[in-house]
């Protein structure tokens, strides 16, 4: 029982990261049918922006407390959001209307570009960076298991962001306009909706979710590296396919499910099998239910 609880909490935290990153994959796919393979690198960049923000905030002695962490997260989200919009603007928009394979290859190129740019950027570099803030061990005991407040806070924050995004997309005028563009870009334009702006908004929202996950991952694992987005990106892509790509609740469910699968899978057969579970799940879902778990239930693509 105690082991189970501990694993469950880990699964929820890791699943939150996958889910937050998966949202961006799904949202971008929903709007412009592009699998943005550079998306995992935005998660990595979010972690690095958070790292630098924490260092800077540390100099004005704001860096360690809850306020500092939240502030750093906001800064990282803003920077990464802007960067995501920029990536779309320079790399994908000029290819709108081109055969789909072309922006896909561009996305792979963008991914390599971002990774290598971080690697050669002096303050960040190629080696592992230790996150300036580590999570406190404070918490409480439940059935003999130590539950860290920090872990709960990560999960709660992820949940808060996901619910916020969901409400925005479902209820706000801009969210509805984004869904309208996703469903029928031309018809949306005929209603006076600036499709390019909605596409930018999709990239912005996806990127800030990834950045939040990146900062939280930095805090959780304690170290970051310019390649950290690669595997997480693939896993989050798996999660979005698992839930039904283009479907936002599906991406959240898929991410959580993948976290659970991975943590419980590896705890029973060993850590070296970790990636086998995730990508095995991808293959199974593609073979048996390519629309994903929630892929058919909704009429729309978002």
């Amino acid at each position: 029982m105690s082991q189970f609880l501990e694993q469950l909490l880990n699964a929820l935290v890791i699943g939150s990261f996958y889910a937050l990153v998966a949202l961006g994959y799904s949202m971008v796919y929903g709007i412009i049918r592009l699998i943005n393979f550079a998306h995992g690198d935005l998660y990595m960049l979010g972690a690095f922006f958070g790292y630098s923000a924490l260092l800077l905030l540390g100099r004005i002695s704001l860096g360690s407390g809850v306020t500092g962490v939240l502030l750093a997260m906001l800064i990282a989200m803003g920077m990464t959001g802007g960067l995501g919009v920029l990536v779309e603007r320079v790399a994908y928009r000029p290819l709108r209307g081109a055969p789909r394979i072309i922006p896909l290859i561009t996305a792979l190129g963008m991914s390599l570009f971002l990774e290598n740019a971080v690697m050669v950027f002096k303050p960040w570099g190629a080696s592992f960076r230790v996150y300036p803030v580590t999570l406190g061990r404070a918490g409480f005991d439940l059935f003999g298991v130590h539950i860290g407040y920090a872990h709960l806070a990560i999960f709660a924050m992820a949940l808060f962001l996901m619910v916020g995004l969901h409400l925005f997309v479902e209820r706000s005028t801009y969210g509805k306009a984004m869904r309208a563009v996703a469903f029928d870009l031309e018809a949306a334009q005929l209603m006076g909706i600036n499709a390019n702006r909605m596409i930018s908004l999709g990239f912005f929202l996806g990127s800030i979710m990834a950045a939040a996950a990146g900062v939280m991952a930095g805090l959780y694992y304690g170290q970051i590296n310019f390649l950290m987005g690669f595997i997480v990106g693939l896993k989050a892509f798996t999660a979005s396919v698992l839930g039904g790509i283009g479907n936002l609740p599906g991406a959240m469910v898929g991410g959580m499910l993948l976290g659970v699968l991975e943590v419980f899978g590896t705890s029973s057969v060993g850590g070296q099998w970790k990636d086998v579970f995730a990508f095995g799940a991808l293959i199974l879902i593609l073979v048996f239910k390519p629309t994903g778990l929630l892929g058919e239930r909704t009429a729309g693509r978002m």
Binding site: R179, F183, E186, A187, L190, G192
Partner: peptide, 26 residues
């Protein structure tokens, strides 16, 4: 200048009211 496109092209996954709301996007 507003066009009603061929084949209606209403937004299927949005409600009727939300479709009207999109018409008033500007």
């Amino acid at each position: 200048i507003v066009q009603v496109p061929e084949g209606r092209r209403i937004f299927g996954p949005l409600t009727v009211e939300e479709n009207l709301e999109m018409g008033a996007f500007l």
